[in-house]
């Protein structure tokens, strides 16, 4: 759709690779990646504050963790997005997911997808993080249930498991 007065595209066909699957969707400039992902059925991406405070909407965009509520869908055009589902799931859980279950790192679970993806980005950068590194890595993720300590121990355990596996993927 093109604006008659300005000749500018008001909507654009964007092509986003979500967890390895190409998705095409026509969206106007002001739609966020969060809105689009949920519209595409990726409701594992949570909507908390919609202003960058809570990290519930975090996804990996070309491997970098970002708040999808502050990312425009146009900006994800021809790029790869990973949600927590792309990381793993029942039957093929990622060590981070296993560790969150084993260490009680999730209670209501609302913060968990964002927490796990922020932790994944952290471990990709720093395979053997100190407690301070972990706290800094999760400084944009709020949890109202766990008090964080169980999340920290889950991440330490996952880091160890991944190092033993010899990879962080």
């Amino acid at each position: 759709m093109t604006d008659k007065k300005t000749g500018m595209a008001r909507e654009k066909l964007v092509n986003i690779h979500v967890n390895g699957t190409a998705c095409e969707i026509t969206v106007p400039a002001w739609r966020t990646l969060l809105e689009v992902l949920r519209e595409l059925g990726h409701v594992e991406v949570k909507c908390g504050c919609e202003k960058g405070d809570c990290g519930a909407c975090a996804v990996l965009l070309d491997g970098e963790v970002v708040d999808s509520c502050l990312t425009l869908a146009w900006n994800a055009d021809r790029r790869s997005v990973m949600t927590v589902q792309g990381l793993g799931g029942p039957g093929k859980a990622h060590p981070l997911q296993t560790a969150f279950i084993e260490h009680g790192g999730a209670q209501c679970g609302y913060c968990t997808p964002g927490m796990i993806l922020a932790a994944k980005a952290l471990l990709d950068d720093i395979p053997n993080p100190s407690l301070d590194d972990i706290k800094r890595g999760l400084s944009g993720n709020l949890c109202r249930c766990t008090g964080y300590t169980r999340i920290f121990s889950a991440i330490r355990a996952a880091a160890q498991a991944l190092r033993q596996e010899g990879g962080t993927s």
Partner: peptide
């Protein structure tokens, strides 16, 4: 930079 916002905001 270490105490600026949180990880996701620092990436943007």
């Amino acid at each position: 930079a270490k105490v600026f916002a949180g990880t996701m905001i620092r990436n943007a």
